[in-house]
Amino acid sequence: MTEYKLVVVGAGGVGKSALTIQLIQNHFVDEYDPTIEDSYRKQVVIDGETCLLDILDTAGQEEYSAMRDQYMRTGEGFLCVFAINNTKSFEDIHHYREQIKRVKDSEDVPMVLVGNKCDLPSRTVDTKQAQDLARSYGIPFIETSAKTRQGVDDAFYTLVREIRKHKEKMSKDGKKKKKKSKTKCVIM
C-alpha cells in the first residue's frame, strides 16, 4: 500500500485542523484551538488504489514558523489553505509557496490551493482571484467548507493525484537520464 505524506499549511484560523478532522473523523470542530502540530493517518481508496494518507496539520501562528522547514522537508505534497473571508490569509499563500519551493529546492512541488469556509456569506476573496492565482502557479484550486464537508475529500484526493503525477514524471525523467548515460565512448 502506497503511503502519501501530505502537509496542510496556511495562516492561523483558516480551518486547516477543521478540514483535516472532517476528512479523518467526519465531524466539524467549530471551536478554535490553535494547533502546534498534529499528525493523522487514514486509509482510503483513490482511483481504485488503496493508500495510506499521513497528514500533518501544522501551526499557522507566526511564533511556530521555525518548525516549518522541518515538516516541509518531509512532506510530499501540500494543501495551501486560505479562508475566503480573510484576504490576508490569501496573500500569505505566496509566502508559504515560496518557502516550500526553497526548502524542497524545487520549482515543481505537488500543491493544491484550497479556499476554505465557502459556506460563509462574508467572502472577501473572489473565486476568480483564487483561480487566477492557482493557474499562475500551475496547481489545482478547490473551494471547501469544513463545516458542510463540501470539497473536503476532493481537496485531499486531488493532492494525492498531483503527487502521483509528480512521481510518474520524475521516474520518466530518471529513465531518460539513465538511457543517456548508457551511451559509451570508444577510443581507438
Score class of each variant (00 low, 15 high):
G60P: 01
V125F: 08
K101N: 08
E76C: 09
Q150L: 15
S122F: 09
E62W: 03
S39K: 15
D33H: 01
G174R: 10
V9C: 11
I100N: 02
V9K: 01
E62R: 03
K175A: 14
E162Y: 13
E62I: 04
G60E: 00
A66H: 14
H27P: 00
A59F: 00
H166I: 08
D57E: 00
V152H: 11
M170T: 04
I24E: 01
Q131H: 09
V103D: 09
T20G: 01
R123W: 06
A155R: 03
Y157R: 13
V125L: 07
K5I: 01
I142F: 09
P110L: 03
R41G: 03
K172I: 03
Q70I: 04
D132L: 05
I21T: 15
S65A: 14
D119N: 12
F156D: 01
D108R: 12
H166Q: 11
Q61M: 07
D57R: 00
A66G: 14
Q70R: 07
G151C: 06
V8I: 09
V112C: 12
K16L: 00
E162A: 06
M188C: 04
S17V: 00
S145H: 03
E37P: 02
F156W: 05
S17N: 00
F82T: 15
E37V: 01
K104G: 12
R135Y: 15
K176Y: 15
V44S: 12
K172R: 03
D173L: 15
T127R: 05
P34Y: 02
D108A: 12
F28C: 02
D33E: 02
Q129H: 04
S171G: 04
V114R: 00
L120Y: 15
V44A: 12
Q131F: 10
K179E: 05
K179R: 03
V7C: 06
A11I: 14
L6D: 03
K5D: 04
G12W: 14
Q25I: 04
D154I: 06
K128I: 07
Y71K: 12
Y71R: 13
P34R: 02
D132T: 05
K42D: 06
L159N: 02
D119Q: 11
N26T: 08
T87S: 06
E63P: 04
Q150K: 03
D126Q: 09
D132C: 04
K177E: 10
I139Q: 07
E62P: 09
Q99D: 15
D57I: 00
R123I: 07
E3Q: 14
N85Y: 10
V44Y: 15
V29Y: 11
K175S: 05
R164V: 04
N26C: 13
Y96N: 01
T74Q: 05
G115P: 12
S65Q: 06
T124I: 07
V81E: 13
V29G: 04
K167M: 09
T74P: 05
E162H: 07
K117Y: 14
V125P: 11
K117N: 12
L19H: 13
E162Q: 05
D54R: 10
I55H: 03
V45H: 07
C118G: 10
L52Y: 13
H95Q: 11
K88A: 14
M67H: 04
Y4N: 07
K172E: 03
I21F: 01
C185Y: 04
D38C: 00
G10K: 05
T58F: 00
D30M: 13
D47A: 09
S17K: 00
R41L: 03
V152I: 11
V125C: 08
T35A: 00
T2Q: 09
I55T: 14
F90L: 12
Q61R: 08
K128R: 07
A18N: 15
V8G: 04
G75C: 04
K178M: 12
C80Y: 06
R164T: 15
E31F: 15
R161P: 01
M67N: 05
A59T: 03
H95Y: 07
V112L: 08
L79T: 02
D38F: 00
V44N: 15
C185P: 03
G15I: 09
E49L: 04
L133I: 08
Q61S: 15
D30V: 10
V45K: 07
V9H: 14
V112E: 01
R73W: 07
R68I: 04
A59N: 02
V7W: 09
F141D: 02
E168M: 09
E76N: 06
K182R: 06
D30G: 12
D154T: 06
Y157A: 12
F28V: 02
A59E: 01
T58P: 01
K184R: 06
N26F: 07
K177N: 04
H166G: 10
M188N: 14
V9I: 12
R73Q: 11
V14L: 12
L159A: 04
R97E: 11
D69V: 03
A18S: 07
I24H: 02
S181V: 14
R102P: 02
K165W: 15
A134L: 15
L52M: 14
D132H: 05
T20P: 00
Q70L: 05
V112Q: 09
K175F: 11
P110V: 04
S39V: 02
I163V: 04
A130I: 13
G15T: 01
M67L: 08
I139F: 05
R164Q: 05
F78S: 01
V125H: 12
